[in-house]
Design a protein around this nucleic acid. Sequence first.
DNA 1: AATCAATATGTAAGCGTTTACATTTAGATC
DNA 2: GATCTAAATGTAAACGCTTACATATTGATT
Lengths: 335, 335
Amino acid sequence: MTITITDVARIAGVSVATVSRVINYPDRVKESTRCKVQKAMDENHYVYNALAGSLGKSSTRTLGLIIPTITNPIFAVSTQGVQSAAARRGYSLLLGSTEYDAETEYNLVQLYLEKQVDGIVFSGRPLNDRSLAYMKSRRIPYLFTWEAVDDIDAPHITFDNRRAAKQVVDYFVSMGHRRIGMVAGRFKDTGRAYRRWMGYKDALVQWEIPYDDKLVIQKPYSVASGREAATRLLKMEEPPTAIFCANDILAYGAMAAARDLGRRVGVDVGIIGFDDLEMSAVMDPPLTTVRIPGHEMGTMGADALIDMVEGKKPETVQYVLETDLILRESVPRLN
Amino acid sequence: MTITITDVARIAGVSVATVSRVINYPDRVKESTRCKVQKAMDENHYVYNALAGSLGKSSTRTLGLIIPTITNPIFAVSTQGVQSAAARRGYSLLLGSTEYDAETEYNLVQLYLEKQVDGIVFSGRPLNDRSLAYMKSRRIPYLFTWEAVDDIDAPHITFDNRRAAKQVVDYFVSMGHRRIGMVAGRFKDTGRAYRRWMGYKDALVQWEIPYDDKLVIQKPYSVASGREAATRLLKMEEPPTAIFCANDILAYGAMAAARDLGRRVGVDVGIIGFDDLEMSAVMDPPLTTVRIPGHEMGTMGADALIDMVEGKKPETVQYVLETDLILRESVPRLN
DNA sequence: AATCAATATGTAAGCGTTTACATTTAGATC
DNA sequence: GATCTAAATGTAAACGCTTACATATTGATT
């Protein structure tokens, strides 16, 4: 029923090896026969079977990418980076999300290995130590993005979550804020959430502001939980004048919370986010936030991984990309 | 180097067929031998080779999904739907985006076919007639989401873009608006954009409002272009009192444009979006928009496709899901 | 103990490629 | 035209699994 390389060979009157060559190394076959074969393929609507092909070669020219969730637009941009860089070099992408679940992540790793991907890009530290152990036991390359993973001997392309978070709080302080709350991500979900909290604390230490437990609320990343958390903070007897949200999604929720309570963002209360999503610039007021190199991180990650796959580069790429605090109008200067 | 089914068989002292059976049909092998084999697999860190497996069976248990872009969050939600429904039934997903380019789409289809996917979910009508012809020439099932494709004999799971758009304009009219602009998507990019424009016109006809060319601007979907287009509309000598944006992303831009020009959304000018993204509820003011069944469309699409793949259902699923106009505060009542 | 039907396992031929190696062909050199 | 080298093509053995079919084992039934 389906036509194979063998059929094409028969029709064109050549051997299967020759057909395989016109597919893989066209310039190793004489032009006249190449045309004959090409014609036979076209006329019979031959479709290459990549499964069989990869079984013969060692490689599938496929990368696996693991992200927390596709639902947060920020992972869409890094994913697009990985995808486009991979495509540019002739690789395709297997995409999977963990939804912050360690077991799901492990299954994903296993699936990828079974599907014989040539390499895996992780977004952040693996949630599951088994995932890592599994990877190490195999011989395929992998790397980390989104978060440095110091204790693991693998390359990473990342940015400094802790430092970026500290800069946020530094800025609040420079605007006269001393009582600063934080809507953090859940530390058990991601190391990034934890690092950003560390950065928050670093700044407090530097500016000699006592750490207050009640000012920090861990929440999953969603608009609704940002709203809840910020509502709680703003309703305290002694509410913060500024709130650092661990990502823009949470910040949007926090802005809504402030409005609900009649506090004007950028006038009565300061809010800063993290990620610089496309929408942040058109919030009312425009949201001050940390721009992270999502797309770049993706492309560099894919490129570095492919280099490893193809044995081109040393295995110790350790890039730390720059972040920028984008100043907009969501932070008032306190008299 | 890598350990295969043959190694496992040798170690466990059984035949390869038996090993294959413990992998695929565990209950067809006696418990004692199953344990022996399992042990041999575990101790030697055997990893199943899905490539070789699929070559033997007919199926890869993999679906291909084609979306316009991963960058618009609304496709993230339908993608997540497809993904989760597929996973639930033991299928994995190959994800690719066309970026609204016909050639890219065709390449994607070709890639999927080469990778032997069991079926393909399209998001909207194929941009490229060759894609479609190609699909038809193969024997693998496919279906459409996001948009009915009447002239193609394939199932679809969709919603009525035209009707939903008409309801938007109906609502504007019911609030006293007669001069209504539209920031539309580009008709050449998607049929959905065109359909929504048709719905806009349907309403104008019904309410006997003359169609004015200058009130409709086609733009690619981005915040920036929404802002541009709305700016242009609002700066007209006789500006619209209401603007229908073909998606929420454009609407966010339009809201910013209104603010830039000192027009209060929901008071001086009405804006309605389309998609009901998570953020729309926390815009200032909260954005009135059309909620579409993105997640449901995804899950139903995947389920229907898998049914087809597995030969379970008639091939003529034609679901039209419901949309809802979510009334919030971005539309003023005109005196 | 013989018979029979399940049940469990083994044998070996695919699945559609790739590729090392062998063979043929072509073109250049004398 | 004989010789040699390089280029073009062919042969056949992998790659790691599945599965139809054959064979062996088991246990119930008589």
